[in-house]
Design a protein around this nucleic acid. Structure first.
Lengths: 225, 225
DNA sequence: GAAAAAAAATGAAAATTCTGGTAGTAGAAG
DNA sequence: CTTCTACTACCAGAATTTTCATTTTTTTTC
């Protein structure tokens, strides 16, 4: 875990760096907004500790600049000013949390843990298989940059395979997994959807064995290229 | 955006609920830890406002229980006690932020915005999508300089989409997020609002696929120009 | 190896589901 | 009282899912 400490007061900066180093974080220091920006353009950090009052470029401006650039690193603001307006300004500029000076190092540490813990699990995984990729959040499917327009059942079918590696599934198993108990259709239905999927996949140049048939057993994903 | 307020003091609870409702959030109230847990097992929320001191199950215990179950909803803790230990305990239990009573409602609102923003995909206070922009603080919506007059539900609907990028949401999911459970209407209602929104968008020249239909799955924002 | 049997693929029609539009009611707001 | 908003119901056209008859492929058996 790598943390950038942006704080112009050398004594405070040094104290924070030392404390966080003891907590086994990798820490780097910057003493003004501009040099912090320079570092951030080149290196990646897991979290930024950002003082509001800074020479060259203040914390809120830096924060805005980062967010505008699409960087979503957790930012913990440090502020000496305790007025409501400044807190709100900081949070609206895109900071994730703030701490009012003077603060205790124990609290700093707790807030850092809270922010880092949060960052980890927020990304939605995109499922891929060779050149094929499927994004469950947007329901988009691509093969080699080209988007496929799948029907709902075809989409679910493909997602099901992608979530299960190379496992073989019989048509009966597929029906059990993708259809609700109330109305399970004939196995012929699965055949039909498999066919639809294969057709659409081939139409964008996917190899014909992407979904392969295992005679007598069922279907599975073909070898990953 | 749906918020659960867990606070045993009825007066405070009511005040918060009323204030947040005015801010166009869908709000539900719970008055003890156990009933909060029951609600959370069944419904989905975008944020929890959680008092530390509660009958049945205290806030920290509830927080732990949620995190252990893998739920990563943003949690904002409310505490009357101002000692460092309790703050740290709350944050380590998995809370994302805390607020010490008594607090100003303006600050509560700012922190809620900050937490919700982190969960979603947007980092700027003004949400935009191509030529479309929506300012949550003023509730103004513009497309290409032209202002749209949206009804409250249409506004919420649009904000919800704007906060979630290209994610697909079924009508049922939309109902869960934008309506309080006491009065969840039929799915036809969502259709009606989608329609209203599309009409108003088109009337100012927005592309008709700005809110696009994903057959059988739901709705989402169309490709960003 | 070739015929028979089993399994899978194909094509196309029937049944079902989904969506967008119209219309109308109830209730709140002004 | 009028206007705006939220909600429902219903319908037709479109898209999808399902079924079924037929052909092709693979396996089994002799």
């Amino acid at each position: 875990m790598k943390i950038l400490v942006v704080e112009d007061d050398e004594m405070i900066n040094d104290a924070i760096v030392e404390y966080l180093s003891d907590q086994h974080y990798a820490v780097e220091a910057a003493y003004d907004g501009k040099s912090a920006w320079d570092l951030l353009e080149v290196f990646t950090y897991d979290l930024i500790l950002l003082d509001v009052m800074l020479p060259e470029m203040d914390g809120i401006a830096l924060c805005r600049k980062l967010r505008n650039k699409g960087m979503d690193i957790p930012i913990l603001m440090l502020t000496a000013r305790d007025t409501l307006d400044n807190k709100i300004e900081g949070l609206d500029a895109g900071a994730d949390d703030y701490l009012v000076k003077p603060f205790e190092l124990g609290e700093l540490s707790a807030r850092i843990r809270a922010l880092l813990r949060r960052g980890g699990s927020t990304t939605t995984p995109v499922l891929t298989w060779g050149k094929l990729s499927l994004d469950p959040s947007t329901c988009e499917v691509f093969f080699d940059e080209k988007e496929l327009a799948l029907s709902p059942k075809e989409y679910k079918l493909l997602e099901f395979f992608l979530r299960n590696g190379r496992r073989v599934f019989s048509r009966a198993q597929i029906l059990e997994h993708l259809w609700s108990f109330e109305q399970v259709p004939e196995e012929a239905t699965v055949k039909a959807h498999i066919r639809g999927l294969r057709q659409k996949l081939e139409s964008v140049g996917a190899p014909s064995n992407l979904i392969e048939t295992v005679y007598g057993l069922g279907y599975r994903l073909g070898e990953e290229p």
